[in-house]
Amino acid sequence: MSDTAMSPANGVATSRINWRLIVPVAVIALMVLLPFVVGTQSYLLGIAVRAMLFIALGQAWNVVAGIGGQLSLGHGVFFGVGAYGTAILFNSLGLTPWVGGVLGAVASIAVAGLMGAATFRLRGVYFALATVAISLCLEKLARHFIGITGGDAGLAVRFIGDSLSAAQSRSPLPFFFASLVMVVAYYVLTRRLLRSNFGYQLQAVRDDEEAAAASGVPVFRTKMWGLILSAGMTALTGALYVQFYLAIDPGAAFGLGQAIQIQLPSLIGGLGTAGGPVIGGAIMILVSEVTNWLSARTAIHGLDILAYGAILLIVVMFVPGGLLGRTRRGA
């Protein structure tokens, strides 16, 4: 991905402090230190892993929907295929999740290719509807083929103890660093993407397909590659998710609730920005923890969903582009 930045400072020496670099580096440094502060077996470390998995899913969705403008309402498909693929290959064939995760991503990419080929030449909501339809189909299939997927109860990954080759650990520490690497990698990828030719193509297609084509942008190909990249990222996150939780079920994989949750970090943090899903995801996990605590004390269930809805409503009404806003997409 060649850097084609056309930024104001392009080619101009500047002595201003580069906060866009300093802030992410400082956050990463603090995250690296976190296990040494809270302890390697801490509950907080588990929350951090959950947060980063959530953020990574938001980052993946942001590529096709936030930057590319293709509203996917069924990204759980790619997440589920990645997670189930990894778990099934390990349980039934003993295939290491390092390979299983990649194969799951390849399967997700194949599904994305089929979805894109069927819908991307059409205008309007067809793609969004197709993602929902495929998501619902896969949920039904996952519930039906009990022998492979475990049916409604879901699939538990066979635990063999601490093992690098099986990507399993009793401690959250390896998953903390794995998910941190994933979030940082996705963040860097998004930043590079936004300043690359492909990133500009995606943004042009998002803003106006006909004008993009009139500027020489291959619209269909751009949408297709955006979806493929996003599907691959989502599936890899699904693979890490299933290794951390050691379980996956149809609702968590293909359910609409999951699909909607995947969208929230970007919508709240900043659609089409590099930092938006990170901020949005962190806020949501914070809210989730507080509402879970409140739910436990008040015996009122679903407070987290209410809080998510309220936050989303406030963002849509007062900061429609999300907290970082679209114009600060390099952030």
Binding site: Y200, R206, D207, D208
Partner: peptide, 9 residues
């Protein structure tokens, strides 16, 4: 018809 989220340049 311009790309509204992008600068002139």
């Amino acid at each position: 018809r311009l790309f509204e989220s992008l600068t002139t340049q």
